[in-house]
Nucleic acid binder design. Structure first.
Lengths: 220, 220
DNA sequence: GTTTCATTCAAGAGATCCATTGACTAGCGG
DNA sequence: CCGCTAGTCAATGGATCTCTTGAATGAAAC
């Protein structure tokens, strides 16, 4: 990144967007921000880091231009600068999925055994939504549901699922979804629902992927 | 990347594909490899680095899984592991274009003034190709043309353009293309052709983007 | 076997990155 | 004004990255 020719400088700048994502904590941040804007403290909580450290990472993302911030009273809210950033994150994830060695094992270590959970694809869900024979359950935090969700989905954040099972029509066929393929909320929801006798399945990935595929959504 | 929880480890691994591209020199390497496989020495030459340094960067890309290598006699050829890697690079570039501050200036510094060059879009070129009223000129090195090119294009590497102007039908409407939006070859070609009286234009980007858009190509 | 060529390996200096800590600031409520 | 809360800044030490140099490998040519 020194005085080494115009071409080198140009490619250094192009690599900036990769540098911004070249850290696990920042990747987590972008993954959460893909669901909607968040304050620093909330983000720190999500990624299990101190507020100071989270703030530094956010500054870095800010400098790269991938995220924006706005102040509201005493709080500062961060959000992705544009949908392209979400695309970038998902493409990166796909590349890692296909090529990074050991990723499957790490995913299994974090997510546990998914083999006993029924998984359905976006296309499946779309046709079943059209036929109307399914209850779609958004188990993300309320704010994320509010910022946008699959059209027709109902919101029961995973934390309240057990106490709000009554909200789900008896014996309904439930499809749960959350933030994306590496989010555990939907898995947990399916486990809970199965135990309670619902024929539940999880959507293969989350809301951002549904939206990217231009499938029907509801936005504020 | 230590012993900090399964979730952190997973996201660290996801960030690996970004780390692989988080360097200007490696970005250049991937940009060239998107045109087809190359030996270490050729690559070193393209990115203006020592062979040793280039080799180290290639090892890093190899470890990340984004590229593969094969030995042929005394030479080792590197190539992208899959089309996803090309997608990743182009998405990254798009994100940088939209969000990295100062990129436009750096591009101008390297590419010079493009405002006097006529540029046409992929869609334009496709319709004009169908109508058959245009000569498409691939000015990349011969090997890259051989590895795949726009259907119907003729090959005159930029280095030989001046001495092979006779290969172009007199007064033909020429569209030149090369590796991508940050490649200077097509710009140079258009400047040369204009000086010689051809009504020349450059394609807005290069062969990989044409192929990604599933437009007609010829492959070996 | 020796030479030659393409590539990799090993070691080191300088820069950058990252988590931690503690101090600092900006807005708000009193 | 004081104190409180949400974030940021600055400094630190240890890890990682990047380029350089020179030596080591591996396959072919002589």
């Amino acid at each position: 990144m020194a005085d080494h020719g115009a071409k080198a400088a140009l490619y250094d700048a192009l690599a900036e967007s990769a540098k911004a994502l070249a850290n696990g904590r920042r990747a987590e941040l972008v993954d959460v921000l893909a669901q909607g804007e968040r304050s620093v403290e909330e983000l720190a909580d999500e990624i299990d880091q101190t507020v100071a450290n989270t703030s530094q990472h956010l500054q870095r993302l800010l400098r790269s231009g991938l995220v924006e911030s706005r102040r509201e009273g005493t709080r500062i809210y961060y959000s992705l600068s544009s949908p392209v950033v979400g695309d970038l994150w998902r493409t990166m994830r796909r590349a890692a999925q296909e090529h990074v060695a050991g990723l499957e094992q790490l995913a299994a270590d974090y997510l546990g055994d998914r083999s006993t959970l029924r998984t359905i694809t976006r296309d499946d869900l779309r046709t079943r939504l059209r036929d109307g024979d399914v209850v779609v359950l958004d188990v993300r935090p309320e704010a994320e549901y509010a910022a946008g969700h699959i059209r027709g989905a109902i919101s029961i954040p995973i934390a309240h699922l057990k106490s709000r099972l009554g909200d789900i029509p008896d014996g309904a066929d439930v499809v749960a979804y959350c933030r994306g393929p590496y989010c555990i909320y939907a898995d947990e929801a399916v486990r809970v629902l199965k135990k309670k006798g619902f024929p539940a399945a999880r959507l293969e990935d989350g809301f951002p992927e549904w939206a990217e595929a231009r499938l029907p959504v509801t936005r504020p």
